[in-house]
């Protein structure tokens, strides 16, 4: 279980810029085996939040704990998948997938065997000795996912992992991720700015608003599982449409509010729709 309470972070003023309240009073509890998607407009602090959970960034106030243990830095029970893939360009696909194990001192034979297992799982068999530069973006992110799974973490932290991919590749990878998750049931925190992606993948959607970044709503997604084999039916369902529409209403309001306040006017007190 991941518990986040009263989390706050202010980036200090730089030059003429005002200090930025990146996060303010973020409270969130994520159950074991839950797939939580965090949705918000760009600049709402969702990546900041994920980096803090990963132990890559400090915060000013509040607490993050994993299974009751406070987070003080990166840990072996958490593994991250990056938007930019962050693969080692000089290392083969096999070595990239095995990298987390290599850092932990796992012997070459063992880690290669484990890497090949995961390369198989993400559908990249035959590419073991290629370099990342020889692969398409979608294939590179499969490597990123395999690398994270290779260390067998309890928690997968995914920072807009499909954000840099084209629509078709993204849809394929969403299905594959659902398949893998439904088979392994790891805890996943998945950042996205796509409403459809958030609803399709998540058990719950945490909706964030910008400046200060905070969680304005936790939307449960009561769509049936397993979803991997029924993506089309789910996306065509009334429930799916209803949730994404309500998320979009709130996101649009945030954007409008931001534009109005930027123009020095008051935001409409009632939602437009």
């Amino acid at each position: 279980m991941i518990e986040i309470s009263g989390l706050a972070k202010t980036f200090p003023a730089k030059g003429k810029d005002e200090p930025v309240d990146a996060l303010k009073d973020v409270n969130l509890t994520i159950q074991d085996g839950e797939f939580l998607t965090i949705l918000g407009p760009s600049g709402c602090g969702k990546t900041t939040l994920l980096r803090m959970i990963a132990g890559l960034m400090d915060w000013d106030d509040g607490e993050i704990s994993v299974d009751g243990k406070p987070v003080r830095g990166p840990g072996p029970e958490r593994a991250m998948v990056f938007q930019s893939f962050a693969l080692l360009p000089w290392a083969t696909i096999r070595d990239n997938v095995a990298f987390g194990l290599e850092l932990r001192g796992v012997s070459k034979a063992k880690r290669n065997a484990r890497a090949d297992e995961l390369i198989d799982l993400v559908g990249l068999r035959g590419f073991e000795t290629r370099l990342p530069g020889q692969l398409s973006g979608g294939m590179q992110q499969r490597v990123g996912l395999a690398r994270a799974l290779a260390v067998d973490p309890q928690i997968l932290l995914m920072d807009e992992p499909f954000g840099a991919l084209d629509e078709q590749t993204r849809r394929l990878l969403q299905e594959e991720l659902l398949q893998i998750w439904e088979a392994t049931r790891k805890t996943v925190i998945f950042i996205t700015h796509s409403m459809e992606e958030a609803v399709l993948l998540g058990d719950r959607v945490a909706l964030m608003s910008p400046r200060p970044g905070r969680i304005v709503e936790l939307v449960p997604v009561p769509l049936p599982r397993p979803r991997a084999s029924a993506v089309d039916a789910i996306e065509g369902s009334a429930e799916f449409a209803k949730i994404t529409a309500s998320l979009w209403r709130q996101l649009r309001e945030m954007q409008l509010f931001r534009r109005h306040s930027a123009q020095g006017r008051h935001a409409p007190s009632e939602p437009a729709a």
Binding site: A54, L56, P74, M80, L103
Partner: peptide, 11 residues
């Protein structure tokens, strides 16, 4: 990004 990746894997 690569350095951050390394840190996240406890290098």
């Amino acid at each position: 990004a690569l350095v951050e990746m390394g840190r996240s894997y406890c290098a």
